[in-house]
Structures are given as C-alpha cells and as structure tokens.
Design a protein around this nucleic acid. Sequence first.
DNA 1: AATTCAATTGTCAACGCTGTCAATCGACCC
DNA 2: GGGTCGATTGACAGCGTTGACAATTGAATT
Lengths: 351, 351
Amino acid sequence: MRSQSTPGRESTTIERVAEQAGVSAKTVSRVINNEPGVRAETRERVLAAIERLDYQPNLAARGLAGARSFLIGLFYDKPGDYLSEFQTGAVQRCRESNLHLMVEPLEAASPDLSGAVSRLIRQLRLEGVILLPPLSDLPAVHSALEHAGIPAVDIAPMRRRRDAPSVDTDDRAAARQLTLELIGRGHRRIAFMLGRAGHRATEQRYLGFSDAMQAHGLTVDPQLVQSGNFEFAEGLECARRFLNAAERPSAIFASNDDMAAAAVCAARQMGLALPEQLSITGFDDAPVATMIWPQLTTVRQPVRAIGRIAAELIIQHKPHQRGWPQPVPRPHLDLELIVRGSIAPAPPRKT
Amino acid sequence: MRSQSTPGRESTTIERVAEQAGVSAKTVSRVINNEPGVRAETRERVLAAIERLDYQPNLAARGLAGARSFLIGLFYDKPGDYLSEFQTGAVQRCRESNLHLMVEPLEAASPDLSGAVSRLIRQLRLEGVILLPPLSDLPAVHSALEHAGIPAVDIAPMRRRRDAPSVDTDDRAAARQLTLELIGRGHRRIAFMLGRAGHRATEQRYLGFSDAMQAHGLTVDPQLVQSGNFEFAEGLECARRFLNAAERPSAIFASNDDMAAAAVCAARQMGLALPEQLSITGFDDAPVATMIWPQLTTVRQPVRAIGRIAAELIIQHKPHQRGWPQPVPRPHLDLELIVRGSIAPAPPRKT
DNA sequence: AATTCAATTGTCAACGCTGTCAATCGACCC
DNA sequence: GGGTCGATTGACAGCGTTGACAATTGAATT
C-alpha cells in the first residue's frame, strides 16, 4: 500500500462495501447514486453493508471519475447578516442531496471578475452557482458562467435574464401593502427613502409604494423621495432632509430597516414623539427592527427559505440539458407584513 | 475519449501544460506544488506554459491522488452577522494558498453530533477545521476530529485544550478598560449584564469588569449582575430589573451590543434621559451599535482578522506532524475600545 | 428444449493528478 | 578517461469512483 499521510486512517472504500454485500463495486456505486436497475433485494443488501461499515463515498474520487462534482458555489460580494442566514438555508437543501456548498466572496468591482469566476469553476467543477446581488446583475459573471456551461441562479436580480432562473420575492406587492397600512391610518403625506441604485429591491419597493399612493389618488412629492443608499448613515441625512421639509411628512417609508432606524434616530433628535408625531416603516425585518424603540413595522424576508430554493433550483437542473427548460422556474415566495409599534394614526392635519 | 457531460468543455490538463513546456507532467506538478528540486529555468518555462494555457489544476484530482484535499471546514452552529464577516476573512487567507472553505452548519444540540462530524470529514477529507463557539467547546466534536487526526482550531473556547490552538481576543482586558471608562466618569454603582452561559466571552468580560471594580475598591452588588443571555429580549427584562432596583445603577455594562440596545430601550421607556441619567456600554461593535441613539460605547472585535488567523493556523500546521507543536500557537489580537455617546459622567449622587 | 429479450450485474479502463523510485545529467575529482 | 555524487527529471502505478459496454440471469415465448 501507498503511504498515507494520515497515519492509520484507512477509511472504508466502495470495494470493501462490495465485498461485504457480495456484489461488485459498480453495483454499490449504482445504489449510492440511486440508479435504476438494481434489484430491490440487492439494494437492501448493499445498503445494509454501507450501514454496517459506516461507509462514506469519497467526494474527490466521485468528482474525478464522474460527471458530477457534488459542489455548488455561492458567490457573494459583501458579507452581512442575511448572507449567513441565506447560506444556512442553501446548505440545508444541499445536505438532503449530499451536495456541498463552497462560499466564495467575489469583488463586484474587480476588473478581473470574469477571470476569477472562470478560474473558480474550472478548479472546482461546480455543478451550479448561486449569485447574490449585486453579482446577480453583472454580465461579466453571467458570461463566464454561461461560457463554461454552468447553471446559475440569480437572487433578486434587477433584470431577469431570459432562460435563466432567479429567486425573488414580490417586494412590490409587499411595499404596496405596507403603504396601505400607512394610508389606512390616515397618512397622506408620506416620504419615501430609496435604497441603493442598481438593486432590484430599490426599484420594486418604490413601485409598490407608488402603486398604493396612486390607487388612493395621493400625490408623491418629489422632494420626499430621496435615496439613503440602504445605509444607516446616509439614511440619517436623508431623514433629516425629509423632516426639515417645508411641510413635514407624517410618515416615512424607508426601503430597509437600517435606514428606518436612522429615521427613528433623526426624529428623536428633533424631539418628535414616536410614533405619535411620525410613523416609520422599514423593510427586511433585520435584527435592528426589534432592537430599537419603537420597534419597526416592516416586511419579513424569508431569507433562509430563499437560500433553500436557490439550491433547489440548481439541484433540479438536469445536467445534460444545457440551458434551462422553458419556462424557467420562477418560484413564488410570500413576504410577511409585520406591524409593530413604529406606526400610528396620522396626527390631525394642521390646516 | 470518454464522453464528458459538459459538451465541448475540455479544460486544460497538466499533460497539455507539460507538452507546452517540454517537460513531464510530474515536473509541472512539482512547480504547481512549489516543490524544491526544479531548476529555476525549468520552473520559469513551466510557469509560462501555465500562464499561456490559463491552466487551473483540478481540485478533485489533486485531492484523490495526493495526501492533501485543499479543503478546510468551517463548522458553526447558528448563523449571524459575525459569521459572514469571519468566513470572509478565512476565505481570503485560504485563497492565498489555493485552499477552499467548506461551510457546514452543525446542530450543537444534535445527539449525533460526532457522527455528523465524522461523516463530513471522511467524505471531504478536510485538511483542518475551524470551530466557532459554542462548537469549540464540545467534546463530541473534538474527539471525532482527533480520532480522525484532523487539526482543529478553536475560536474563543471556554477552556483551551492542551496541544490545540485557539484564537481569541483579550476580552478580559478590554472589559476592564471599558469599565475604567465608566469609573473614570464617576460611576460607582454599575450593573453588569452577563452573556450566555458556556461562552468564553461571557466569562472573560465579567472577569474584566470585576478586575476594574476591585482595582478601585468598588463592590459589585450581586443583585446587579444578571444574565441577558446575549439576546435583546432577555436583555430587556434584565435591564428593567436593574433599573427597578432599590438603588438604581448609574451605568449598565452589557456583555454585547444587542443587550446594550435593550438597555437603551428599557431606559427610554422608563423616561430616563440618555446618557445623562444612565450610561450604557456594549461589546462587539455590532451593526446595531451605531444604529441607535445614543450610539453605543463598545469594543470592536476584529472578526475578519480572527477568521484570517484561524485559517492561517490550519495552513501553517504541517500535515505530517500529528498533533500540534509545542508550544501551540496563541496569536494575539487587539481589541479596539470605541467611545461613543452612550456614556456620560455619572449624575450627582442622591443623598 | 431452444430462443429471445429485458433486467440485472460485472469487467475494465479512465478521470487528472501525485508518490515512489529509477534514470539522467553535469560538475568535480582522482 | 572513468568514477562519484547530488541535483533534476521522468516513468509508472495508483488514488476511489464512475462510464461504457459486455456478460449473465431468468422468465417468457416458440
């Protein structure tokens, strides 16, 4: 035998299982891969042997010999709370199919993005890739992946690609609903804080807001639509501008919770009573939503579920069909409106 | 040739590079692995060929043929903001050595924890594993790893294992320093909110607090030391108990920012002016620290750097030396005290 | 009983690389 | 000129699994 570096660690091979079960290695392989054409009784016997020997197939060997690699890539740009939540969902789904997730941070702004992607996929032979925004909108990434013939799932992309699956939630509908909560409480003059440009969420949330306002014949004051870039700091500035406007809004709809938290701070610093004098809504149900007072009315994103579905889409994709079937899967996910203390009936209008 | 499932995707092999460079495959392998005993000129030639052909060695093949797998595992229990930050640091370091990180969530409470660990390492042949708390303190995990002869780095473990490396920060010193900031502002009656039991941070932060109090001859009222379990909700309860105490503390030291945010909420609901009537400190410099008003005085954890170092330790570990060298590496990391608006001089004492 | 055919199982090579060990090279020495 | 020795390089056999294809089995059919 060849000297193994890890002393004494001979792990069971498929050969040993075959011996135990009294079949050939190939048959064991068939059982492992759930291939058809194995008699039930034989399958049982093999399964028992696997169990008895506590056999685990070697991933590297499977990857080398076969067409599959059992590896899925998760490419992201910036870390964040939602990332770990998302990846946990994705890993869960992977486990059910004996796949593994390789997380790879990628500089969205890097000049050699497509080179980096190309190197990764050739090195790892990924079976598929999940792209988190803003990577899900970068042509450099898409083309490298497509060139290699590797299926990719876009998460919340700005523009859906033809023949490519994506996972996203109906932010527009949720934003509409959230806005209706404000309108229903008598708010008429509502400020809207936009997110970062180039994100689907930014666009959709504004559209939903707009829908609701229009449906009620309310006009949106352009001065009350400004960007906070999804960041607390910029949200703070933005909120101050809103609150110093000639005619103060009675509510602020922030496109994410961080900015909503900023609005809370700004309002408090100006001595406004919350939520009596100003209603505030956020989006995402981020940790901060319940760590401030008043707690934010917001929309919960099923982040873990989205991760799970993204993995599911890759897994469902049949390797031999290059490209995706028509129609491309478009799973639907429901958002949950969460009403908390940060909104209240609009104060009586000063004449 | 054997039919590849990915049509037309013939990636360059080591053989092709060898041909280009006019050497044998083995020599190319030597260059790739930085093995000694290759003439400089030859090395150049091979490197040039690799460059020209844009060759990427196949990970599965390397893993199968050689003693290494080029895979490091990151085992965690619960996702969270710090996880994605940590893993990003770890991946960065891995990249520099052409390694990859496999993230694997593991149920700390699972009855078959050691089985799960054992299956993972046999399937993946991990070169090393990074254990995030609380996994870094579970004997089931350690023993499975040790049994397989796989090096593991414990992150912030409660008890350091003999002959096993760990990465942690000097929370005790930082907590001491933070407490001194309070004492220096005249605070004498300070409440301490503990974290979750079984975490090193919980223990060390309290000790640091205790150190500082003792150094100044201040007594710690046992009624003012209670646990908020590192969670906002429980922190809220805990803060209320502190603030309703017969003699109210003039400051609260919360063991993390989430609980500090809870203290802020609790105080505000009781109508206290912050920070004039109550100073509050947190720990970690979590996102919430700067998203509330007043912003939290806290301690920044170099999370990404810790991740990087954890990977470094695994990488430095020489595979042929089973176990770790004496003395086991104990890298030192500095914490950064960040003074923000949540602390102020103690109000004059009533009497 | 011979034939047929689908179902089941096995044989063998190959996946792309590295470990082992042998071969070659070239400088240096007697 | 031949010999010696360390430095380089190469030949070759796997690593553990799966793909292609051949072999075997056994029930149904003639």
